[in-house]
C-alpha cells in the first residue's frame, strides 16, 4: 500500500538557524504517528512546512501522490490536510458553531450570488453544514456550547474546538500540535479516546506532536523523534522508550550518561 503522506529530505532554516534538517518519513492510511522531541526541536516548524505556512528550502512533500510543495495553506487544506495550533488560534469573536462552519469553508459550495439571493441551494447547504457542525461539536463533547463565543471557552474546550474545526475540513490527515498541553489527567484521557476515535471511526490519519509520554506511548502506531531539526530515530513506541539516544536528547548527555551508569550498576547488583 502506498503511504498517504511521503516526506523526503525536508529542510528549513531561519537565517543561521537550521530549524528542520533533512527529515524523511511517511504516514500510512489510518495510522497515528507521533512526533516527539525537546522544545525547539523543530516539530512545529515541521507542521508549518507541511501546511504551507512556511516554504521549505529543500525536500519533497507528497500527499496521496500529489506534490504539496509550493501550494498555499488553503490549497493544502483543501487537498485534505488539516491542523491545530500549539498556541490556540481560534476565531475568538465567533461562536463555537461558527468556528466549525469556517472549517467547512472549502466544502460548502454556495456562491456569492446564492448567498445574496438566499435561494434553496444556499439554505440546503447551510443547513447541511450546520448539521455537520453540530455533529462534530457533539463528537468532541462541545455540543452544549454551540452558541458560546469561542474565547469564553475554557482552555481544554478551546483545544477540543480546534480539533473539531480541523475535522470539519473533511481531511484525510490531521496534524495535532500538542493537543493535551495544559490539560488535567482526566482531560488527557478524553483526548486519548478522541484521537483513537478520529482514526477508528472517521478513518482519518493523525500526526501528533506531544510532550505527554504516556499519551504518546498509548495512542501511537509509530513514533518519530526530532532533535535539533533532525530525525533522531523512528520506531514503535516500545522501541523508542528504550532507545538511549532519545533519553539523551531529552535530558542532555550528562544526565543520560549518569542514568546509563545507574542502570548498569543496577544490572550489576541484580546479577
Amino acid at each position: 500500500m502506498t503511504p498517504l503522506l511521503t516526506i523526503t529530505g525536508l529542510s528549513k532554516r531561519f537565517g543561521g538557524l537550521v530549524a528542520v534538517h533533512d527529515v524523511t518519513f511517511d504516514v500510512k492510511e489510518r495510522e497515528i504517528a507521533s512526533v516527539i522531541g525537546p522544545n525547539g526541536a523543530g516539530k512545529t516548524t515541521f507542521f508549518n512546512l507541511l501546511t504551507g505556512i512556511f516554504r521549505a528550502d529543500a525536500g519533497e512533500i507528497r500527499f496521496r501522490g500529489r506534490n504539496l510543495l509550493g501550494l498555499r495553506p488553503d490549497q493544502i487544506a483543501a487537498a485534505g490536510v488539516a491542523r491545530t495550533f500549539q498556541n490556540i488560534r481560534l476565531f475568538g469573536a465567533m461562536t463555537t458553531l461558527e468556528n466549525v462552519l469556517v472549517g467547512q469553508h472549502a466544502n460548502i459550495a454556495t456562491s456569492y450570488l446564492d448567498a445574496l439571493l438566499r435561494n434553496r441551494a444556499f439554505l440546503q447547504r447551510e443547513r447541511a453544514a450546520i448539521e455537520r457542525g453540530r455533529f462534530l461539536l457533539d463528537y468532541v463533547q462541545l455540543g452544549s456550547k454551540a452558541a458560546e463565543i469561542a474565547h469564553n471557552l475554557s482552555y481544554g474546550e478551546q483545544r477540543k474546538l480546534e480539533i473539531a474545526r480541523a475535522l470539519a475540513a473533511n481531511p484525510a490527515l490531521v496534524l495535532l500540535d500538542e493537543p493535551s498541553a495544559g490539560m488535567n489527567p482526566r482531560e488527557t484521557g478524553e483526548m486519548r479516546d478522541l484521537i483513537h476515535r478520529i482514526r477508528d471511526e472517521l478513518g482519518i490519519s493523525v500526526v501528533l506532536i506531544e510532550h505527554d509520554m504516556p499519551l504518546v506511548m498509548s495512542v501511537s502506531d509509530r513514533v518519530i523523534v526530532l532533535d535539533h531539526g533532525e530525525k533522531l530515530c523512528e520506531g514503535l513506541p516500545a522501541e523508542i522508550r528504550s532507545n538511549p539516544r532519545v533519553v539523551e536528547a531529552y535530558l542532555g548527555r550528562s544526565v543520560a550518561a549518569k542514568l546509563a551508569k545507574a542502570h548498569d550498576a543496577l544490572v550489576e547488583v541484580t546479577q
Binding site: D74, A77, R89
Partner: peptide, 8 residues
C-alpha cells in the same frame, strides 16, 4: 493564519 489553514 488560522483562516488560511482552514482552507480560506
Amino acid at each position: 493564519i488560522a483562516a488560511q489553514a482552514m482552507g480560506i
